Simulated assay, not measured.
Amino acid sequence: MAASHRLKPLSRVAVSGGTHGNEMSGIHLVKHWLRDPTELRRSSFTVTPFLGNPRAIEKCVRHVGQDLNRSFTTRLLSSAEAEDEPYEVSRAREINQTYGPKGSAQAFDFMFDLHNTTANMGTCLIVDSEESLLPMHMCHYIQTHHTWSRCPIYLYKLPGEETYAIDSVAKAGLALELGPQPQGVVRASLFAEMRALMACALDFIELFNSGMVFPAFEIEAYKITGRMDYPCYPDEDISAMVHPKLQDKDFLPLSPGDPIFQTFSGEETLYEGNTTIYPAFINEAAYYEKKVAFAMTEKCIFSIPSLQRE
């Protein structure tokens, strides 16, 4: 039997709500916890809730200058302060100083990042890659113990890409992505589910810290392979919309020849890839500014080794 992987117990955990200022479940959950942190308390570690992007939250917009959740690259975090830089760049440095620095020994042990999507993703667990051992074990624990919904795992990092999300300033992290929920709206059912997911994840950390051995397992996850852009006119206006047959089909198979777009005059565009893919973030409202219609993923099975604390 292979030796168990050992990691140090976790002592400091952070939770960001409002990394995007119009995704309301996390914003209201963190505001609730800032008023009353009782349900975050566990005996073996501390949990610090914070609001990721206060200026965007105030205006109820995704961001005020640029996407905060793409602002944690080494280049941006190490760049000199500039007068005309977007607010999110200086905010990223501030978060990095408080909860990181990214890649350092003094960084927080774990960070949760709470999101909503307008896409039909259900309750989705987002990890940078399958090599992140602790988050993958946490996902497996959530899938086993949180029985409200299916909880697919989405691996967001492309090969050779640097981690750029807010939770990358901590030693490990997990984003919760719940939808569909319109921007600027809080839905009680998704709020309740996010709260239950967080309780489940914190219970996992408590068990890990107590010395429980988590055995090896195989797990299914959706790994990003690229992004599908909207067709555009020469002036860069989009020239088509997501096809009705693709709409709301997140994490379902899309095969070569299946329709993906419909032009505004009613013509179909078919998927021309060579293999079946599993789209995610289909017709996500926030991705129109990026001209992204959906993320392309492949469904993979990963073998995750056993884990216990040192």
Rank of each mutant, 00 (worst) to 15 (best):
residue 222 Y to M: 03
residue 236 E to V: 09
residue 200 C to V: 07
residue 237 D to Y: 14
residue 240 A to I: 14
residue 225 T to N: 09
residue 230 Y to S: 08
residue 221 A to R: 04
residue 211 G to C: 09
residue 205 I to G: 05
residue 214 F to A: 08
residue 204 F to C: 01
residue 238 I to K: 13
residue 223 K to C: 09
residue 225 T to W: 01
residue 222 Y to K: 05
residue 216 A to K: 12
residue 225 T to S: 11
residue 206 E to W: 03
residue 212 M to N: 05
residue 227 R to C: 11
residue 217 F to P: 03
residue 228 M to I: 09
residue 233 Y to E: 12
residue 241 M to S: 07
residue 213 V to A: 06
residue 233 Y to I: 07
residue 221 A to C: 04
residue 224 I to F: 02
residue 206 E to I: 01
residue 234 P to D: 12
residue 222 Y to H: 08
residue 239 S to P: 04
residue 202 L to T: 07
residue 228 M to D: 00
residue 225 T to D: 06
residue 218 E to N: 08
residue 235 D to G: 14
residue 203 D to G: 04
residue 230 Y to P: 00
residue 207 L to W: 00
residue 218 E to H: 06
residue 223 K to E: 14
residue 236 E to N: 15
residue 234 P to W: 15
residue 224 I to V: 14
residue 237 D to Q: 15
residue 225 T to Y: 09
residue 222 Y to Q: 03
residue 240 A to C: 08
residue 239 S to C: 09
residue 200 C to K: 04
residue 212 M to Y: 11
residue 203 D to C: 07
residue 214 F to G: 02
residue 220 E to P: 07
residue 240 A to H: 04
residue 234 P to Q: 09
residue 224 I to P: 01
residue 226 G to F: 05
residue 204 F to H: 03
residue 211 G to A: 07
residue 229 D to A: 13
residue 206 E to V: 06
residue 214 F to K: 03
residue 206 E to Q: 11
residue 231 P to Q: 10
residue 234 P to K: 14
residue 204 F to P: 07
residue 221 A to P: 02
residue 233 Y to C: 11
residue 231 P to N: 14
residue 230 Y to M: 07
residue 206 E to D: 14
residue 231 P to W: 10
residue 215 P to F: 10
residue 222 Y to C: 04
residue 205 I to P: 11
residue 203 D to W: 03
residue 205 I to R: 10
residue 210 S to L: 12
residue 215 P to W: 00
residue 211 G to Q: 13
residue 228 M to K: 15
residue 206 E to N: 07
residue 209 N to G: 00
residue 226 G to Y: 08
residue 206 E to M: 02
residue 210 S to Y: 10
residue 229 D to L: 14
residue 201 A to D: 01
residue 209 N to I: 05
residue 237 D to C: 14
